[in-house]
């Protein structure tokens, strides 16, 4: 048996702030420009992609993050089976998108590490290394931005008020997590 190894096994709690690495979460990048692409995605995973910039949409089992006018990230809402890397939704998307040349579907499940941050001090934490202006962002849920944290690329998804998913590339995750926990320890 090949064993699944989490990139990080981390969980930390501070006053009014907690951080936790969650995995495995299925992550796909889908890309396309045509109108048929959007309907194809809708058919494949039964949800409408967010077309407004820096927003997201969510169904029962899936969340879609807007990344660019022709790029989205599809996430499973819950953890998936560690003993396979074949995903039903990916197959649906491949059949309805890439197989018929409407766009691209790419598995990036292990490309990104998902860090869930909860608590009232989330944006105080992020402001120690992220230049983005969270003043409006913090007040409404569903927002998605890509920016830098401690000079590392991040995707921030405002899942719920006081609950944020932060996605970072796997190879950077250890560095970023220790930067975050260091900063959090003083907040």
């Amino acid at each position: 048996m090949l064993n699944y190894n989490s990139p990080l096994v981390k969980e930390n709690s501070y006053s009014e702030l907690s951080m936790k690495v969650i995995n495995p979460i299925m992550k796909l990048i889908i890309r396309g420009k045509k109108r048929e692409f959007l309907s194809g995605v809708g058919k494949a995973i039964n949800m409408i992609l967010p077309t407004e910039s820096c927003t997201s949409s969510t169904s029962n089992d899936t969340t879609a993050l807007w990344l660019s006018p022709d790029e989205w990230m599809i996430l499973s809402n819950n953890v998936i089976d560690k003993n396979t890397n074949s995903y039903e939704q990916e197959n649906h998307l491949i059949n309805n998108i890439s197989k018929i040349n409407l766009g691209a579907v790419v598995d990036v499940t292990d490309q990104y590490v998902l860090i869930n941050i909860e608590g009232k001090k989330i944006f105080d934490l992020l402001s120690t290394g992220c230049p983005f202006n969270f003043n409006d962002f913090r007040n409404k849920k569903g927002g998605v931005i890509q920016s830098l944290m401690a000079k590392i690329d991040i995707i921030v998804h405002h899942k719920e008020i006081n609950n944020v998913n932060l996605l970072v590339r796997r190879s950077f995750s250890e560095h970023l997590y220790s930067f975050l926990s260091d900063a959090a320890s003083r907040i």
């Binding site: 910039s53 660019s68 006018p69 983005f132 830098l148």
Partner: peptide
């Protein structure tokens, strides 16, 4: 033009 106003360090 796609994401709105951001810091130069993102560009």
């Amino acid at each position: 033009p796609f994401c709105g106003e951001r810091e130069q360090s993102e560009f």
